[in-house]
């Protein structure tokens, strides 16, 4: 089975003074949909560009099926990075870009491309840099869904997309994933759109991985404990707290981990937290809480 492993990855800037990625260790397995979350500047784009060999790490390695990805045609042909940079020549027509991509990738899915062009109502005679942000994303999305790569990395795929096109994108993503299983790593700020879609969650905070687990596991381990302040605080005192909200005499404390063996005091209610709220809580926390 294909596996994309990131081992002990570090990336420093300014001669080591600025550490953007700190000892990242994470694996991406085949045929799963990963959500890569984190604040702006947390290091998501840096990580993705290093995986795709766009940039080099300061130390550490990226392995695909055990082979180092760096300068490796075989490994790189299995990875596609849909990114926010201008990768195409100026004034290039969309039609030409598609044609070139098709020539480069032997098993490019032209049928799907045609279907998507129609669904998104894309005019391929236009020039790429004359498009709106949304339509530039659409062109990139189409290519990303049609390339025959086992690992497709999507950096903010819905940037600039209106509601209708976002809906089309997710539907087509699911359809393509079902018909042709491969790994998608989606990085987005709009967590609620994909929180049911992802099977696994990886979260980066301040250059470190703070969460790396399946969505099901996380949902089963995250709880919201609500009730009078003293009772709740006592109940949660040994637990990993990720959020706290006070309202008069009452408090809601969000925790992660298994619930303690003690009996739930009367007046205290425990519910599950939604994935999105959980991630927002983690992002708001000061300092990483090692779990």
């Amino acid at each position: 089975m294909d596996k994309l492993e990131i081992k002990n990855l570090n990336r420093n800037f300014k001669f080591g003074k600025q550490k953007v990625l700190k000892n990242i260790n994470v694996s991406f397995l085949s045929n799963k949909i990963y959500g890569l979350f984190g604040e702006n500047g947390a290091g998501k784009s840096t990580l993705m560009s290093i995986i795709a060999d766009y940039n080099f790490p300061t130390s550490g390695e990226v392995l695909l099926d055990g082979e180092n990805v760096h300068d490796n045609d075989n490994a790189l042909s299995k990875i596609y990075y849909m990114n926010q940079n201008n990768m195409y020549p100026k004034n290039e027509k969309i039609k030409k870009i598609f044609k070139l991509t098709k020539a480069i990738y032997k098993d490019y899915d032209s049928q799907l491309q045609e279907k998507l062009v129609n669904e998104f109502k894309l005019n391929i005679k236009l020039r790429f840099d004359k498009l709106s942000t949304g339509y530039k994303s659409i062109v990139k999305i189409i290519i990303a869904l049609c390339v025959p790569c086992k690992f497709v990395i999507l950096d903010e795929p819905t940037l600039g997309l209106d509601a209708r096109n976002r809906d089309i994108f997710y539907r087509e993503l699911i359809e393509s994933y079902s018909a042709n299983p491969r790994t998608f790593i989606i990085s987005t700020h709009i967590i609620e759109e994909i929180d049911k879609l992802v099977s696994d969650v990886v979260m980066i905070d301040n250059g470190k991985i703070v969460l790396n687990d399946t969505a099901d596991n996380i949902r089963s381990k995250a709880y919201s404990v609500n009730g009078p302040i003293d009772l709740v605080s006592d109940y949660t005192k040994d637990l990993s707290v990720i959020g706290k909200e006070e309202l008069g005499q009452y408090v809601t404390i969000d925790v992660m981990g298994s619930l303690p063996n003690k009996e739930v005091p009367s007046g205290v209610k425990i519910t599950k937290i939604e994935l999105q709220k959980l991630i927002v809580n983690l992002m708001n926390k000061d300092g990483a809480n090692d779990n």
């Binding site: 042909s77 990875i79 480069i104």
Partner: peptide, 16 residues
């Protein structure tokens, strides 16, 4: 630079 951008986007290594 533009040739590099094009090539890396298509998964072509720097050696190639």
């Amino acid at each position: 630079y533009y040739l590099f951008k094009l090539s890396i986007n298509f998964g072509i290594s720097r050696q190639s």
